[in-house]
Design a protein around this nucleic acid. Sequence first.
DNA 1: TCGTAAGCGAGACGGTACGTCTGGTCTTTAC
DNA 2: GTAAAGACCAGACGTACCGTCTCGCTTACGA
Lengths: 185, 185, 185, 185
Amino acid sequence: MTSSTPARPPGRPRSGVNAVVFAATLSTVHELGYARATVERIAAAAGIAKTTIYRRWPTKGALIVDCLLDAFGPAPLEGGNRAEILSSAIRWIAGKIGEPGVGDAFAGVFSDAVSDPELREILSSRLQDPYRLALQDVLGEPERRVLFFIDVIVGTLLHRLGMTGEPMVDADVDALVEMVLPAFR
Amino acid sequence: MTSSTPARPPGRPRSGVNAVVFAATLSTVHELGYARATVERIAAAAGIAKTTIYRRWPTKGALIVDCLLDAFGPAPLEGGNRAEILSSAIRWIAGKIGEPGVGDAFAGVFSDAVSDPELREILSSRLQDPYRLALQDVLGEPERRVLFFIDVIVGTLLHRLGMTGEPMVDADVDALVEMVLPAFR
Amino acid sequence: MTSSTPARPPGRPRSGVNAVVFAATLSTVHELGYARATVERIAAAAGIAKTTIYRRWPTKGALIVDCLLDAFGPAPLEGGNRAEILSSAIRWIAGKIGEPGVGDAFAGVFSDAVSDPELREILSSRLQDPYRLALQDVLGEPERRVLFFIDVIVGTLLHRLGMTGEPMVDADVDALVEMVLPAFR
Amino acid sequence: MTSSTPARPPGRPRSGVNAVVFAATLSTVHELGYARATVERIAAAAGIAKTTIYRRWPTKGALIVDCLLDAFGPAPLEGGNRAEILSSAIRWIAGKIGEPGVGDAFAGVFSDAVSDPELREILSSRLQDPYRLALQDVLGEPERRVLFFIDVIVGTLLHRLGMTGEPMVDADVDALVEMVLPAFR
DNA sequence: TCGTAAGCGAGACGGTACGTCTGGTCTTTAC
DNA sequence: GTAAAGACCAGACGTACCGTCTCGCTTACGA
C-alpha cells in the first residue's frame, strides 16, 4: 500500500541553506555589483561550498531568479478598484527594485538573459508568469495587455536603474503611475 | 596665407575600418547573440586584427556603443507639433531596435553597464545624451521630463526584447505611443 | 591513537598532470624551440587546459624551471675522490643538456631570466641552489668557489649550445674537464 | 662630366643617427633590461621614428648585434706572449660585459638566438667571427680550440651576469684567467 | 547495527573570453 | 631616397569566471 503522503526521499535531507544563500546573494550583489558577484564569492559569503549551490541551482541565473522570487514574495493585488490595484502594484515593484541588491540582481539576470535563451525561459516562466497570471486574474485583462503593462513598468524602472545606478525616485514613480493608469482604465 | 583647412595629421591615415567593424559587429551579434559575439570573432568577421579594434575602442562595450551610435544616426525630430514629434521618435527608435543585431547589441551593452560604472558613463554620455539634448531642445521640456520619457520608451522596448527575444510588434508600439502622448501634451 | 600517515587533504586530488606536462613541455620545446613553445601549445600537447598549467605554475618560466628540475633529477655526486666527482658531475650535466629539449629549455629560461629578476630568483633558488649546496657539501668548498665552478661549466655548455644550436661534443667536454680539474684540486 | 670625387649618392643623405641609436639602445637596455627595451622605446629614447630603425636593421637582434659591435670595438690583441695576450683579452671582454647595458644586451641577444637560428647566424658571423679570426691569427690555434676558448670565457661571464644580474667581480675574473691559461699554453 | 542514499566541503579541472603587449610591416606625407 | 608618424597584423601572455568532476566525510533512513 502506498502512503498518501509523498514518501520522504532517502538520504540525508537538505539543510536549510536556501535562506542563507539568498541573503548572501543579495548582499554580495549589493556590494560588488552583479558581474563581480561570482558564485564563488556568494558561496563564501554564505559560508558554504560552491558545489552546494550548483547542486541546488543549475546556473548562476537560476539562482538569481529564485533569489528574486524569494525577495519579491507574492504581489499585493488585493482589494480596491482597478486603479488602486495597479497603482499599488507599481509602487510595490518600484519599492522592491529599490531594495539593496534586488534591483542590481534583477537588471543583471535580465541582461544575461538577452544572450541566453534558456535563462530567458527561466526568467519568463518562473519569475514573470506568476505575477502575470495573478494580474490577468485580478484585472480580467487579456495576456497581451498584461504583458504590455509589465513591459512598461518593469522596463522603465530597470532602464532608470541601469542608466543611473540609482532606483527611480518617488516623484517619477508617481509620474509613471499617472501615465499608465488611464491606459488601463 | 595659412590654409583654413586643418593640416592633415602626420603618419599613416586610418583606413576606413570603422564602417567595416560596425557592420561586422552587428552581423556577428545578430548571428551569435551579444555574449558570444567576442571581439576576436568580430575582428575576424571584419577581416582585421583584434589589436586594431583595441586601438580604436578601449573595451568591447565602447565598441558596441559607437556601433549603436552609428546605427541610430541622428534622430528625426523635425517638423510638426509635439505629438507628431514624439510619436515619430518612438516609432523611429522602435524600428531601430527591431533591426537585426541592433536590439541585441543595445540590450547587451545595457546589461553589461549594470555592473560596470565606466561603461554606464560611456553609454549615458555618448549614446543617451545627444538624443536627450535634442529632445530637450525640440520639446522645450526640462531634463528630468525627457529622461523620464527615455526611460519609459527605451525601457519598455528593451524589456520586451529581453523577455521574448523579439522586438515589440507594431500594435504594441501603437499602444505605447497612445499611452505616452497624453503625458507629454 | 592518531594515525602516523598524514590525513589526505580535502578536495579533489590533483591528477597526475605534472609528469604529462613535463613530457609535453620537453617535446614541444624540442620540436619548436623555446620561444615558439607557447603555454597553449604545451597544454594542447599534454591534453589539458591552459588554465590547469597556470593554476600550478605562475608563469611560463616557473613551469620550465620545474620541468628542468624534474628532468635533471638529483646530481650523481657519490663516491670517489674530488677529481672523479667533478669529472662525473661535468659529464652528467653535459649529458643532460644534450638531451632533446632539455638544453633548449635551459638556455631559454636562462635567457628570459636575463631581463626578468623574478624569474632569475626562481631559477637561482629552485634550480641552481640545490646542486650548489650538494656540491659545497661533497667538495667542502666555499660557496664562492662552487658558484664559480657552476658558472664555468654551465656557462660554457650553454654558450656552445646557444651559438651553434648543438650540444658540446664529447671531445670538448673532455677538454673542459681537463681544464677545470686542476683549478679545483 | 663626372666629378673625380666619389659621386654623392642621390637623395637625402643619412643623418648620423647610428651613434644616437646605439647610445639610446645601451641606455634603454641598462635602465629597463633587455626584454622591456622595446624597439619603440629605443626609438623614442633616440628621438627618432621606429621606421628609421627598421630601415637600417632588419630585426631587433640585428640592431643589438651592431650596437655591441660598436661598443666592443676591435679587440686589443697586440704584443706580448700568448699568456699576456690571452689574459688581456679575457680582462678586456670582462670589462666590456661589465659596462652598463652592454652585458644585458649581450645576454639578451644571446638568449633570443637560442630559439632563432637566423639571429644565431647573425650573432655568430657578425659578432663572434671577427674576434675568432683575430684570435686564430694571433695565437696560431685551430678554429676548434679558439671556439672552445670563446665558449669558456664568454659563457662563464654571461652565466654569472644572467644568474646574478651583476658582472663578474675582478677576483673571479682573475680565477678565470688562471684556470684558462694553462690549457692554452 | 549496518548498509545505502544523499548532502556537503574543498578544490582541481576544462573551456572560453578579455584586455595587454611586442615585433615587424605597410602607408602616407614631408624634405 | 630618407625620415617621421603611426596604422596595422599576428600571436603570446596572464586573468577571470562559469560549470563539472572527484574525492572524503557526514547525516539520515530502512532492514
